[in-house]
Nucleic acid binder design. Structure first.
Length: 584
RNA sequence: GCCGUUUUAGCUCAGUGGUAGAGCACUUCCAUGGUAAGGAAGGGGUCCCGGGUUCAAGCCCCGGAAACGGCUCCA
């Protein structure tokens, strides 16, 4: 048997062992479902109220069951018989699963018996529980989870198990989690003073500290630089609009709960939850000829969404979101060219960030439930086909994502991996025939008739806040030079060297290098330690030796040694790296 | 929003119903230093908020907020 399959079986059997342990300790618990996941397995229970402090005794019970060991046996029951058995036994969740299998055309189902515990299960499992090492797993977390993942259903109690082949693999996994925690953007954001959250300001409303703003602005500037020679125009839109705007667009009906309402003296407004309707009004205030198209608007714009409190998180899920938003108004025959231009920008941006490796693209289409979407079937196939064709022409590694479309149109969603392999949905290109219809947008075609433009919605970084959170973790706080808040730190050995440090700092500043001088009344060792912890790109300790020498002694981030370089060469090196947005 | 956990000094955290603590940071003084923590003194508290129990609450109970781990959602 393949090693992977064996691990899968161990995890699967562990889910059953977990269920056995829970039933032994809490006989009234009702079983729902217990599948295998990437890092182990989980089991969902109803009629079970647990605290995290209950997990150790469940874990202990599981080890006891493994120690007793026992062969695993299985058999098959006709589906009607199985259903009757579960219904008589009062297992409502198992009965529901069986009824679904019945509807799907199954005629029989299998059962597995592990020790004394029987469960409906399609298998496969280990042959004997003795195959599972008692120290190869641990219970990691307790969570609520809706039955069948549907919010309308009852919330069950879920216990997660981390499970691997052996203790070494388990420890490696747990260790990786600890490493991931070290680069958590919330932790680094605090340590490096990049951003701040204030309970007084509000939940989901982080603020940029000066050092965080340097990074954010560098990204925003770069994004505009990537667009300015590609026919884009900058626009600006206010942060409020009358409800009628979103009633027209359909956002009010779709996202009503999540729009912030602003009450004026006489009128009420919504804080804008997105920019497309505003941009469409800018487009609409012109008489466009087909010769003018495409029209391309770009605006890094802050929008506001009243997200449910439980889903707010650091910078990655906030209530004030700054999108690097752009809307292209074009003819149908221009879609592919425009998509290609955007794909080019995306590739360039993510190459610079060192994230283009192993990316993939989801062609997000309409799901089966068409009531969730605007517009006719014809228009949707037109849009979906246009995007698929563009994906093929641009050699995008794409897969279909049914049900993942926006309510007004299909999308190409770009999924990138960060430096520790986590995947993020970032850039997006969306093809929209519906909002132009709703806003009655038009241009005059070659025949002198009014024609409806297509709108392509696109974002490269997605949101500046979220993207910042992601690159903080991607770089682990060790930003490439062009993004580093402090590019050069000067450490004065003693008071007598401060004047020279200031003079040197001014020369760096004139060369557009971000420099800081540590003049504090501390030992040199302590000042060096602080500079290292701040993750500055380059550090120069300035004392008598440097005063006497024409060369600089530079200590680069990540190195414990210094190198000797002339002032001019150093400046050239820095300016060159910054201009190229070099990753190293 | 739902399930679970957490909330004590600027930061990281200890504190077991009986006078509010440590390390780092900060201020002052001494030390004038050479590539990851020099020494001393000092200042700093709405123990998340609101109720309750108790002679007495940071600690126990109830309600709420926020953060975190999940679930759900994500234009």
């Amino acid at each position: 048997m393949e090693k992977q399959d064996l691990l899968h079986n161990k995890r699967h059997s562990l889910a059953h062992v977990l269920a056995t342990a829970v039933l032994e300790l809490y006989p009234e618990a009702q079983l729902a479902i217990g599948p295998v996941i990437d890092t182990g397995c989980y089991y969902d229970f109803d009629n079970l109220t647990l605290k995290e402090s209950d997990l150790p005794k469940i874990e202990k019970k599981m080890r006891g069951i493994l120690t007793r060991g026992g062969a695993v046996t299985s058999w098959v029951l006709p589906i009607a018989e199985a259903l009757a058995k579960e219904e008589v036994g009062g297992s409502i969740y198992k009965a529901e699963l069986i009824r679904d299998l019945q509807t799907a055309g199954e005629t029989e189902v299998s059962y597995y018996k592990i020790g004394v515990f029987e469960d409906l299960c399609k298998g496969p499992h280990v042959e004997n529980l003795s195959e599972i090492a008692g120290d190869s797993f641990c219970l990691t977390k307790l969570a609520g989870a809706y039955w069948r993942g549907n919010e309308k259903n009852k919330m069950l109690t879920r216990i997660y198990v981390a499970a691997f082949d052996n203790k070494t693999d388990l420890d490696a996994y747990l260790n990786m989690m600890v490493e991931a925690e070290k680069r958590d953007h919330r932790k680094l954001g605090k340590e490096l003073k990049l951003f701040t959250v204030s309970e007084l300001v509000g939940s989901g409303l982080p603020m940029m500290q000066p050092k965080g703003m340097i990074i954010r602005q560098a990204i925003a500037d770069y994004l505009w630089e990537l667009h300015k020679d590609k026919g884009y125009d900058r626009v600006w839109t206010p942060h409020l609009a009358k409800p009628a705007l979103y009633e027209t667009s359909g956002h009010a009906a779709k996202f009503g709960d999540e729009l912030f309402k602003v009450q004026g003296k006489e009128e009420s407004f919504f804080l804008k939850p997105m920019n497309c309707p505003h941009h469409m009004q800018i487009f609409a205030d012109n008489q466009w000829s087909y010769r003018d198209l495409p029209i391309r608007y770009f605006e890094p714009a802050t929008i506001y969404r009243d997200e449910k409190t439980g889903q707010l998180a650091g910078l990655t899920r906030v209530r004030a979101i700054t999108q690097d938003d752009g809307h292209l108004f074009c003819r149908v025959d221009q879609i592919e060219t425009e998509v290609s231009i955007v794909v080019g920008v995306i590739r360039e941006f993510y190459t610079t960030m060192g994230m283009l490796e192993n990316y993939w693209v989801r062609l997000s289409t309409r799901g089966d439930d068409h009531s969730k979407y605007l517009g006719s079937d014809e228009v949707w196939s037109l849009a979906e086909n246009a995007l698929e064709k563009s994906a093929k022409e641009n050699d995008l590694p794409y897969r279909l994502g049914p049900g993942e479309a926006a309510f007004y149109g299909p999308k190409l969603d770009f999924m990138f991996k960060d430096s520790i392999g986590r995947e993020w949905q970032l850039a997006t290109i969306q093809c929209d025939f519906n909002l132009p219809e709703r806003f009655d947008l038009s241009f005059v075609n070659a025949k002198g008739e009014k024609e409806r433009p297509v709108v392509i919605h696109r974002a490269i970084s997605g949101s500046l806040e979220r993207f910042m959170g992601i690159i903080i973790e991607h770089f682990g706080g060790n930003f490439p030079l062009w993004l580093t808040p402090v590019q050069v730190k000067l450490v004065a050995v003693s008071e007598t060297h401060i004047a020279y440090c200031q003079e040197l700092a001014n020369r760096f500043k004139r060369a557009d290098i971000r420099v800081e001088v540590d003049t504090s009344n501390e030992t040199v060792g302590n000042k060096i330690r602080k500079a290292v912890n701040e993750k500055v790109s380059h550090m120069l300790v300035i004392g008598d030796k440097e005063l006497a020498s024409s060369d600089l002694q530079v200590r680069d981030r990540g190195s414990r040694d210094t190198r000797s370089i002339s002032y001019d060469d150093f400046i050239t090196e820095l300016q060159d790296k910054i201009a190229k947005r070099s990753l190293t």
